[in-house]
Amino acid sequence: MKHKKSELLLWEAIGIPFLIMVGLTLEFAYKTLNQNFVIGLFSVVNNSMWENLKVGFFPIILFSLVENLSLKESADNFFTAKALEVIFMSILLSISYLLFKYNLINSLIINHNILFVVICTLSQILSFRVLTINKNYSYLNLLSFLFLIICTLIFFAFTINPPSNWLFEASRRLNNILKF
């Protein structure tokens, strides 16, 4: 059974404010909640490029769990849509991180938040477009599901034991920008 485009559009539209609110919450949750280990697995522990990808990844995963239960897996290519959304959002978040790190964007906190809102919106639009493709790619959907599980495990592993690499090192400039 296929869902109507209007129902899928509604779910993806509901996802936009959810991603924004949860993502912005995860940005500060670790420090706000006294550096709780479990919270640190899902939220930004430092302002490294890698850690900032969590603000996009985990809200998508959380919303996808709720959305998938509601759609009862009848939306074709659901996990493919979500995997592509994760990849797309990660690329855009990485670009925005680098733009801030190298002073290519004004350092006001509002610009960072507005950029995050735009990224969440564009990511949900991409997800909707993939969800409404008329062909069902079941093998790709299965691979996408496995990709999302592996990414989750990698985020946990690299949060607990980050490699010594520039990708995992905090930017001092971003630390200063993101403070209130």
Rank of each mutant, 00 (worst) to 15 (best):
L99F: 06
N134W: 11
F158W: 04
E7G: 02
F28L: 14
G23T: 01
N111H: 01
N36S: 04
N111M: 04
T159L: 01
V66R: 07
K2L: 12
L8R: 07
M21E: 04
P163T: 15
F180P: 00
T159N: 00
S123I: 15
W166I: 08
I91Y: 11
I14R: 04
V55D: 00
Y97Q: 01
V117S: 03
L10A: 10
L174E: 08
C120T: 14
H3T: 14
E169A: 09
S164W: 13
H3W: 15
I61T: 03
L33E: 13
K31I: 12
H3G: 03
T121F: 15
K82M: 00
N141L: 09
M21H: 02
L178D: 00
L26T: 04
G23W: 01
Q124C: 11
L41D: 07
L167P: 06
I14D: 08
C120I: 11
L26Q: 06
F180K: 03
S171L: 06
T80Y: 05
P17S: 14
I125E: 04
F147W: 13
V117F: 08
L142C: 07
L99P: 14
N161S: 15
K135M: 09
A29Y: 04
E67H: 01
F78G: 11
A157E: 06
M1I: 10
F28Y: 15
N47M: 07
I177E: 08
K72G: 01
L69F: 02
E169K: 07
S96D: 15
L84R: 09
T159R: 05
E7H: 10
N77V: 10
K179G: 00
K135L: 09
K101G: 02
I91C: 07
L99N: 06
L8A: 01
E85W: 13
A13N: 04
I16P: 14
V66K: 02
P162M: 14
V55F: 01
L140E: 06
P163S: 11
G23F: 01
L92C: 05
L26F: 08
K31G: 09
F58I: 05
S48W: 04
S6W: 12
L71T: 14
V22I: 12
I154K: 06
N141D: 10
